[in-house]
Design a protein around this nucleic acid. Structure first.
Lengths: 189, 189
DNA sequence: GCTCGTCATGTCAGTTGCTGTCATCACCGT
DNA sequence: ACGGTGATGACAGCAACTGACATGACGAGC
């Protein structure tokens, strides 16, 4: 007989997601989430800084993977090519059942401005660390920050199109198109 | 003898700004702000949706001016040139005593992640309306959104550099440089 | 096999952001 | 004079979050 069920973090995440989808973010209290997970409100706040953060657990893994990919890219690529490569790396494999979860999650986020704010700051954090990674490759400011911010914008826009598009479609080609459009705008060939 | 002092909105804004600078955002309650403005907490929330919003009153004016500028731009310009023109229009005249206020405000925002989130969503709203304005000029998606997001990034980065740079410097040339850098990110080196 | 420290969790009380509702009372037009 | 309007105050209440302390299973070391 174990005292605590395992994976409290995961149970809280799943309970929160379910309830947000069922009732909407505002109609769910932290006590509701904790109860469904078999824990208390206080414990929720030991795992997540606030009621929103529970929806953004994957963000730091994404960030780490992108930074690693930038660090490993061939040395002679232009900044935007480095970033396109990194995002293509994470996008590969995004389709199918990933779409189901992404759609549910996105519809929750889209319905609440507080969640959109949180999403934006996560993306900004990713852009910031990508700019760091570019600077480590001797890209100067403000080019590094601009490339990082623009690339993240290309990713966000592609992701939004993918989520709201046809099932069966893959993220990677949508994103390639988005980066291509960015190059056209910025004036490169 | 008037019953109400005039400009409750402005008094609340000023009181909030003063207190945020004096004590830091977290150490100020809405009741504190209302008291300094000679009003009640409840009245604060009639003018501002929440404790953060009081720092972002100028955002909608900026947005309107940018959109108007895009609508008025020559018809044959490339999307990014239209946006560069619009931002140059609003940047002209940003220097001197504007810097003092901008610096104080920015140091408050920079010290609190909740305020950064709010700033990001304001910028995202501006990007979104700028994308609309571009689409009205027959720019297609995703180019319109990408141009708008990238231009806003260029603005944000330039603004940050201007605020933390030398006094006496003007915003407009810093921003021109930022837009120029944006055009180079797709190319080599 | 007992003890002791550790760690995840629970309990409880308190502050504060924010909302709904109703009362007040100067001002303005008729 | 009178009634409507609009800005404000007063008050009660909920829920997000925090700090402090208690509890009890587990493993390490004796």
């Amino acid at each position: 007989m174990v005292r605590w069920q395992p994976d409290a973090h995961g149970r809280l995440q799943q309970a929160a997601m379910e309830l947000y989808v069922e009732r909407g973010f505002d109609q769910v209290t932290v006590a509701d989430i904790a109860e469904r997970a078999g824990l208390t409100e206080r414990t929720f706040f030991r795992y997540f800084a606030d009621k929103r953060e529970v929806l953004f657990a994957g963000s730091s893994a994404l960030q780490d993977r992108l930074v690693a990919s930038v660090a490993a890219a061939p040395a002679d690529l232009a900044p935007l090519d480095v970033l396109a490569l990194a995002f293509d790396d994470v996008a590969t494999g995004f389709f199918g059942e990933g779409l189901q979860h992404a759609r549910a999650r996105q519809s929750v986020v889209d319905s609440h401005s507080g969640l959109q704010e949180r999403e934006l700051i996560k993306m900004a954090a990713i852009a910031s660390t990508l700019a760091d990674a570019l600077r480590r490759r001797r890209v100067q400011e403000p080019a590094a920050s601009l490339a990082a911010e623009s690339a993240v914008a290309a990713f966000r826009i592609a992701f939004a199109r993918w989520v709201s598009g046809d099932a069966g479609e893959r993220l990677a080609p949508v994103m390639s198109e988005s980066f291509a459009a960015l190059r056209t705008i910025a004036g490169g060939r």
